[in-house]
Design a protein around this nucleic acid. Structure first.
Length: 961
RNA sequence: GCCGGAGUGGCGGAAUGGCAGACGCAACGGUCUUAAACACCGUAGGGUUGUACCCGUGCGGGUUCGAGUCCCGCCUCCGGCACCA
């Protein structure tokens, strides 16, 4: 009796082998910049034989969950598949180990974050090994270890020296629960991404990375990417939020004696005021040739003397509507507000409004439902094209964050401005010819019209279409020094400092004499001190570690103190994929030659939740490092795949809901191979899927059936005795089933590329030795099915990422193998008669045996990326060795199509009968045969045939009248 | 509101413009077994008096010999962004 399928025993056996033999360790090659294929050769800056498969590294909080299992299994299938294709595959693993989770555990239990983190890492490590993921563990990276964060700090300093890391006081997002600031990207609907607390605005001095400087390149370089999900690109594009338009300078009209109400005023004075605005204008930013982002708000310095000329710049996407600008709005935070209202009758009211706005939460303020509010400042600006004075309001629907914090309001053609104008009784002018639906009987606008149209009421620009007018008006402004083309981005600089303990300390020292001083390289890393009180108190817990805080100035040796903030953990994860390439180096963060050999990552896999944060930050980092000459590529991840989530009982798995499926339990019950196969069989990998307890049973049954089919065949001697043909001997797989195979096809270039070529399996060639003329139709049918499945699985894994259909195809093959075995020799009896279990069926015939053996062998090879342990075991039992090194099977072209095909025959679009014809039958014969079918003939009777269509291999379509 | 994506049996899902429902789960019938489990074989979209036919991929139109697939107009759900000037 054949051995029972015992996943536990098989899996631990092979995991031990892989561990001991260091099977998946892949060394960096010696550099050979020859352009020739071979180890270390470089083409287009990347290793010609190098493939980098990477999954987003896990955050070590306890243990791995099913989402991890799916992520890492998917990566593993691809990594194993590429290895079979002869590639040198880098497939490393590490841990995103800094972060709030461990720190919160520390606050609750007192267990130091380092300990909790290392325990979690040990657990996940064990889980990944138990899953049989083929990882080069010699490259393991842990971001919370000093040997890693030393280089995070070093990289920060490189940014710092380039002016790309800077400290400034700014209103920032403060999470009162996490007691730290957050990056814009970490605020979701006004709430903290981690804990959902409402984020507060706080003015603090914080560290930023100047990512805005790279806004344009982050957009442009989407072209350089291989395959990325469209929606991820779209999300980043929206986040960066590029808009083109113009900046327009408005001169503030001088105060009137006594200030007062809405008197039109001082056009002449205003003209004078705006006569020399050049000094404030930004460098022109051409739309055709985008330069570095110019996003920082250009706020005019308030004049020193009250009443002196002051200009305010606005950004607008609609300079064509300038003639319709009937009022002007400043954000409540605008620095000019204070000076403008000083001494006006409106001063008290404006100050009240500003104070209230500042105290309103961000979400409340930005709620679109909220009625617009604002307050008149008592002051005016002069519209540069009309020379008219228009009132300045302060309103909180204008954001200090975007553009210049000031807008020209065009109520006729902007919905928001229209609403505001209606509420405060401000003038609405039509300057773009608007459709009748937008107007009342008197021709007044009843709603803002933002569509296309010709200009009206716009002086010399009347009649120009919108698009032309945008250009002409801006050019006119530019000539007069009152405006210019401009590009604006929603993207803000990346706020990277955090008032928390468990992160990489920012390597800056503050000296009374020298000010802000970077820590010299030879003093890195700035180690995290051991502390006992992790509780956040609004400043970093590090600030309380006095010994650590007090230090000497690296520049002058005087007394100094350290920066107590730590870095956002997204800094750690923005470069870890580079560290893998040189993980053992302690003298550099990474070696340029190593990263250039392996990167960009060929296939990156992870959750879509990182669409903006991690993926955009990493792209930014790579571009900066490229500019610094540290890497030779501009994009880190050539192809990206975002996997769907796994649900259970209708909800996202979570401990609090108690609906968690534990990977450990599942592996213990069904084995790693079943768990791996099931997570990929659940559905398309990119879709969310619901875990089904019975679903995994089915996959487990399937693997059990494959096991049985092979072991029973072995037991009955079908596999060994199938070795009737030449070529079987002298390979690493004596007496092998593969004897009908041509062993000469072994992939030589691949073996040469491997450090361990000596033990590469040699059992599989490509072309089979089967002779078409000696095959029975049943034999040929199984052979064809086998080859079709080989082709499908190859395509599904290698090109389509459709693991579910690949597995379904292997199941079909297994079903056919079972049927062939039961059916008996072709033509000998009906399926039912020969169907008793144990009957050798097709496998009883000499050639049938070879075909049968071939089918079984292919099935094992195809399933191996999914179920690598069972693959290795069965392969070994069949006489092969090291299946993980074997070349990937190729379909034999001769047996990809069946001899005969069944075609559907349609009459007027409805299937009326079927006809079986030779696969290569000519159309005329097919048509003739089709028309004779009884089911067809009766529908043709008495009708006139008007059209005949033959789709080879598919159907025949007849049209009658 | 804007931008994406998706709607197919009881369920997960499959289908280069070419026989809708592959594969699996659940279900039902059977074989084996003292029995159960395992395993194996078989049935299975809906309708209808039929071995013949009709209806079926969210809804309504269209293109085509032929539409789940392409086009137009809707509905619903999911995701992202959202007073961004």
């Amino acid at each position: 009796m054949a051995r029972k399928y015992d996943p536990e025993q098989i899996e631990t056996k092979w995991q031990k082998v892989w561990e001991e033999q260091q099977t998946f360790v892949i060394p960096n090659p010696p550099r050979l910049a020859t352009g020739e294929p071979g180890p270390g050769a470089v083409l287009d800056g990347k290793g010609a034989d190098a493939t980098y498969v990477l999954e987003m590294f896990p955050y070590p909080s306890g243990s791995a969950h099913m989402g991890h299992v799916k992520n890492y299994t998917m990566g593993d299938v691809i990594a194993r598949f590429r290895r079979h294709q002869g590639r040198r595959v880098l497939h490393p693993m590490g841990y995103d180990a800094f972060g709030l989770n461990s720190e919160n555990v520390a606050i609750k239990t007192g267990e130091p974050p380092a300990e909790f983190t290392e325990e979690s890492i040990a657990t996940i490590n064990r889980q990944l090994r138990r899953l049989g993921v083929s990882i080069d563990w010699t490259r393991e990276v842990v971001t919370s270890r000093p040997e890693y964060y030393k280089w995070t700090q070093w990289l920060f300093l490189q940014f710092y020296k380039k002016g790309l890391a800077y400290k400034k006081e700014a209103p920032v997002n403060w999470c009162p629960s996490c007691q730290t600031v957050l990056a814009n990207e970490q605020v979701i609907d006004g709430a903290c991404e981690r804990c959902d607390s409402l984020v507060e605005a706080k003015k603090l001095s914080q560290w930023f990375f100047r990512i805005t400087e790279y806004a344009e390149r982050l957009l442009q370089d989407f072209d350089k990417l291989g395959s990325w999900p469209e929606r991820v690109v779209t999300m980043q594009r929206n986040w960066i939020g590029r808009s083109t338009g113009a900046e327009v300078v408005f001169g503030v009209a001088p105060r009137e004696g006594g200030g007062g109400a809405a008197a039109p005023g001082g056009a002449a004075a205003a003209r004078e005021a705006s006569a020399a605005p050049e000094a404030e204008l930004p460098a022109p930013v051409s739309t055709a040739e985008p330069g570095p982002a110019t996003t920082s708000a250009r706020v005019p310095v308030p004049a020193a003397l009250p009443g002196a000329p002051v200009n305010v710049t606005v950004f607008t996407t609609r300079p064509d509507t300038l003639f319709g600008a009937t009022f002007f709005i400043l954000a409540p935070e605008h620095p000019l507000v204070d000076d403008l209202v000083a001494g006006t009758p409106q001063e008290a009211e404006v100050r009240r409004y500003v104070a209230k706005a500042m105290n309103t939460s961000a979400i409340e303020r930005s709620s679109i439902e909220k009625e617009k509010t604002g307050v008149f400042t008592g002051r005016y600006v002069v519209n540069p094209v009309t020379g008219e004075s228009i009132p300045i309001y302060v309103a909180d629907y204008v954001l200090m964050d975007y553009g210049t914090g000031a807008i020209m309001a065009v109520p006729g053609h902007d919905e928001r401005d229209f609403a505001f104008a209606k509420k405060y009784g401000l003038e609405v002018i039509e300057v773009i010819e608007s459709p009748a639906e937008y107007k009342d009987a008197d021709g007044n606008l009843t709603a803002a019209y933002s569509g296309d149209g010709a200009l009206v009421n716009s002086g010399q620009f009347d009649g120009l279409p919108k698009a032309d007018a945008i250009v002409k008006v801006t050019e006119w402004l530019r000539e007069r020094g009152e405006g210019d083309f401009a590009v604006n981005y929603k993207l803000r600089d990346w706020l990277l400092s955090r008032q928390r303990y468990w992160g990489a300390p920012i390597p800056i020292v503050y000296c009374d004499k020298c000010g802000e001083v970077p820590v010299p390289d030879d003093q890195l890393p700035v180690l995290l001190p051991d502390i006992t009180d992790y509780a956040p108190k609004g400043r970093s817990p590090l600030a309380a570690a006095e010994q650590w805080m007090n230090t000497t100035c690296p520049a002058c040796g005087g007394s100094a103190h350290r920066e107590s903030d730590t870095m956002d953990t997204f800094v750690d994860s923005s470069w870890y994929y580079l560290r893998y390439a040189s993980a053992q180096r302690d003298d550099v963060a990474f070696d340029r030659a190593d990263v250039d050999y392996w990167l960009p990552v060929d296939q990156y896999i992870g959750g879509v939740e990182h669409a903006i944060l991690h993926l955009m930050y990493s792209r930014f980092f790579t571009k900066v490092l490229y500019d610094l000459g540290l890497v030779g590529f501009k994009e880190p991840f050539n192809n990206l795949f975002t996997q769907g989530m796994i649900y259970y009982k209708g909800a996202k798995m979570s401990k609090s809901k108690g609906n968690v499926v534990s990977p450990d339990e599942m592996v213990a019950k069904y084995g790693a191979d079943s768990v791996r196969s099931y997570v990929l069989f659940m559905g398309p990998a990119e879709s969310d899927a619901e875990w089904n307890d019975q679903g995994i049973e089915g996959v487990y049954r399937f693997l059990g059936r494959v096991w049985r089919q092979v072991t029973e065949a072995l037991e009955e001697g079908i596999l060994q005795e199938g070795a009737g043909a030449p070529g079987g001997a002298g390979t690493a797989a004596p007496g092998l089933i593969g004897t009908p195979l041509d062993a000469a096809g072994a992939d030589a270039s691949r073996s040469a590329g491997r450090a361990d070529a000596g033990r590469a399996a040699t059992m599989a060639g490509e072309a089979t030795a089967f002779d078409d003329s000696t095959l029975t139709s049943a034999e040929r049918a199984l052979l064809v099915k086998t080859n079709q499945v080989v082709a499908k699985v190859t395509q599904d894994i290698g090109e389509r990422f459709r693991f579910n259909t690949a597995l379904a195809a292997i199941m079909e093959l297994s079903n056919d193998i079972g049927a062939a075995r039961a059916a008996g020799p072709a033509g000998a009896g009906s399926p039912g008669a020969a169907g008793a279990a144990g009957s050798p069926g097709l496998a009883a015939m000499p050639t049938g045996k070879a075909v049968f053996a071939y089918a079984l062998q292919m099935m094992v090879r195809l399933i191996e990326p999914f179920a690598p342990h069972m693959g290795a075991e069965l392969w070994q039992m069949m006489g092969g060795s090291d299946i993980w090194d074997a070349p990937w099977p190729k379909a034999d072209e001769r047996f990809l199509t069946a001899e005969t095909v069944e075609l559907a025959v349609q009459v007027n679009g409805k299937v009326r009968d079927r006809v079986t014809v030779a696969a290569d039958a000519i159309d005329a014969d097919v048509l003739a045969a089709a028309k004779e079918l009884p089911g067809v003939a009766k529908h043709l009777e008495g009708m006139t045939l008007v059209k005949e269509v033959v789709v080879p291999g598919r159907l025949v379509s007849l049209v009658v009248r």
